[in-house]
Amino acid sequence: MLYFSLLIIAASVLSQGEKKQSPHFYTYNYKKSIVHLEKVQDTTLQNSMKRGASLYSDFCMQCHMAEGTGVAGTFPPLAKSDYLTEKTIKSIKAVKYGLQGKIMVNGESYQSAMPKPGLYDDEVADVMNYILNSWGNEHSEIITEEQVSSIEQE
């Protein structure tokens, strides 16, 4: 029992560094003396948004800015964006595949090319949940990895 407890403590301490980076939470199942790792994607909105915030600073912030303001005439805003609320599927598609051509956001036209960010499907879901619920945006329905996987490029 003591050895088992020590093993659990050691495993949770060792897993701390991983947890900060990884979008998945790891649960440990012990079968006899063998450790198995299982990926469990956390489905609560709050945790998704937390991961999304970190992805946002890595992949989105340089253009859309820290407060989702964008850059007038060049990169559209995400804060209180009508495109986000009215064209949510198109927005997910943009994050998943990139976006070219002219779009209208809050009455302004934008025509810069958005390169494909190169995110995995679960990351697209996380960053969408963050964007849809930040800076005055509200979207109580959670975007899931499964939903993102089913969205095709066209």
Partner: peptide, 13 residues
């Protein structure tokens, strides 16, 4: 040009 290395088109990469 054929045979170019496969790239990880991730963010700025």
């Amino acid at each position: 040009i054929k045979g170019a290395p496969e790239v990880y088109a991730r963010g700025q990469g």
